[in-house]
Design a protein around this nucleic acid. Structure first.
Lengths: 329, 329
DNA sequence: CGCACACCTGAGAGCGCTACCACCACAAAC
DNA sequence: GTTTGTGGTGGTAGCGCTCTCAGGTGTGCG
């Protein structure tokens, strides 16, 4: 219990106090190999009494296991690091890693400089990498030394397992809801077009519109509210009779609604608006936002767990997205 | 450049390739002690050629420096870990720590079990702790071994330096704006009352109301939108003539606005609403939210930097909060 | 009694690195 | 000539831990 004020308690101290060798103490505390009941009890008691906390740094060194999980975020500019989506990912990963003595680092990995990946692979303190907002070429360039320790959130690839929400299903649910509400001239504000996970929603949108004989009205966005506002203006300028806008993110949808309101249009009376993500503020916006769920924390938790476990993972893990019908559509 | 496929490159490899001893290579790469120009060049070239990446785990072990910064979040229940505020804090800290080879862990530290702090102090892999949403008694209980490696975000204490937004100034700015807009029956939905940083806004509110001869109308909230909605109902039930509500967080304010709208009241015409934080969605809510800034990322960055540097820090660092006047008030 | 096969233990070799220390060469000062 | 630096270098002792390996002590069986 009482730390000797200055020097930290080591395994040697515990072993000495328990009257066994360091090896035995390690076996007991590590829970592997053989150990007599007597030894187990004595070591456990000594560890408790001395307040022993294993030095995970030393353990990681000898095991060669690494102490950090790196969340590598790509994108066109470093400001993506400030995205609430990334915040949520990092935070959930940090929560999963904490009990294992592993910390999370957040780095920006420019898409045009995948060499950074090699450095991560050579860095023995890195036990795994979560690739976010990346592209297939980058995934294909993952060095061999990193295989099995890296997963992608969003973009898929044959070489790196990916975790993401089922974008197509979410888009499908939202668009069917819009259609069921009588909307026929439905525009979509997309995410960044280079992002394959964002593109899956676009494909779903296009497929559904075409099969229903409805016009395809696409405007490119970037998931942000500001861009959503500008995109809404563009939609109305190009297709003034639009009666619904499907935004690829809730932030975008909120921006769309604000822009619509600025033009004197009522939501959902004149134009219905639906988003994607079900962020906390979707429920309290005016009008409350109709959207589809995006279990970001669950995705990050699963991805981090997969890397930590190190077991083989199916190439694609898709999390269901369900409709949340509120007022805006 | 070319990693020998299997075994990672160590300092020994670099030293051998450069024709110097490991000690010299360490000195060159570590940038300390003496080294001839010739040695510097040879070691640098060899390191580049072999693609050497220092093993920060080994470095941390021998230096006794730790590889993780723990964000310890307190609160009444574990769900505070899902707070967007915490996400932002963790993410910003992870970004600061990454270049130093340090990872961030997120843990819940129950207020009634500060013993967890001792464990963190005894854990040699922990290089520092960021205490979030904690209380003065917990801060006073910080073990000696942790002093100098722990800072608090929010709550202050004589023993642990604290970083936070200037709550009082922010509250002051918002309330003066409300008053200037002609509002005289201003209610406040507070944060959790046990949280001293939240209480600073309350004190500012009370002081301002009293000195202006206005009624004090307090309802307790918890920073969430859901609680904000219920609090708004309570305000209107108790004081139906309320003409403004100051919420301790933007999330709360959004909940308040939704509840007001549910009662058929117009914002800001019937009741003005102001928040605190200036979250990204404040600008696109309907009506756009009047609020005061809360530089969460800057606070976390400063706090993490302070812990990493290890230099003495002033007991209190307050970040300015400025009014952002929009439509809701 | 010998032998196999459990179960259990401690010595010790590192993991990759830093930093202390001894040492060398050479130059300037006594 | 001896001392006292001063720039440069290499040997090596650890940091705290895991895990292999050699060596115990028992028990069951031929």
């Amino acid at each position: 219990m009482e730390t000797p004020t200055t020097r930290p308690v080591t395994l040697d101290d515990v072993a000495r106090a328990a009257g066994v060798s360091r090896a035995t103490a390690s076996r007991v505390l590590g829970g592997y190999g053989f150990a007599s009941v007597d030894a187990r009890e004595r070591v456990g008691a000594a560890a408790d009494r001395l307040g022993y906390v294993p030095n995970t740094t030393a353990r990681a060194l000898v095991r060669g296991s690494g102490t950090r999980l790196v969340v590598a975020v790509s994108g066109t500019e470093a400001t993506v690091l400030d995205d609430p989506y990334v915040d949520r990912l990092v935070s959930a990963a940090a929560r999963v890693c904490a009990p294992h003595g592993i910390g999370v680092a957040l780095e920006w990995l420019p898409l045009d400089a995948p060499a950074g990946l090699r450095r991560l692979g050579d860095d023995r303190s890195v036990c795994g990498v979560l690739l976010v907002n990346t592209t297939a070429p980058v995934l294909d360039a993952v060095p061999a030394g990193l295989r099995g320790r890296v997963v992608s959130i969003g973009t898929g690839s044959p070489v790196v397992p990916s975790f993401d929400v089922d974008n197509a299903a979410g888009a499908d649910a939202v668009l069917r809801h819009l259609h069921a509400g009588g909307r026929r001239r439905i525009a979509m504000v997309t995410g960044p077009r280079w992002l394959s996970c964002a593109e899956r929603s676009v494909t779903a949108y296009q497929g559904l519109m075409r099969s229903a004989g409805l016009p395809v009205r696409l405007v490119t966005g970037d998931f942000t509210a500001a861009r959503g506002g500008r995109a809404a203006a563009e939609v109305l300028d190009r297709w003034p009779d639009t009666d619904a806008i499907y935004a690829a993110s809730d932030a975008t949808a909120l921006g769309v609604i604000a822009a619509l309101r600025g033009r004197g249009l009522r939501v959902p009376h004149d134009v219905a608006v639906a988003g994607f993500d079900d962020i906390p503020y979707a429920a309290v916006s005016s009008p409350a936002l109709t959207t589809a769920t995006h279990p970001v924390a669950r995705i990050a938790t699963a991805a981090a767990t997969a890397v930590l476990d190190g077991r083989p993972v199916p190439p694609v893990t898709a999390f269901p997205s369900t409709l949340v019908a509120r007022e805006s559509a």
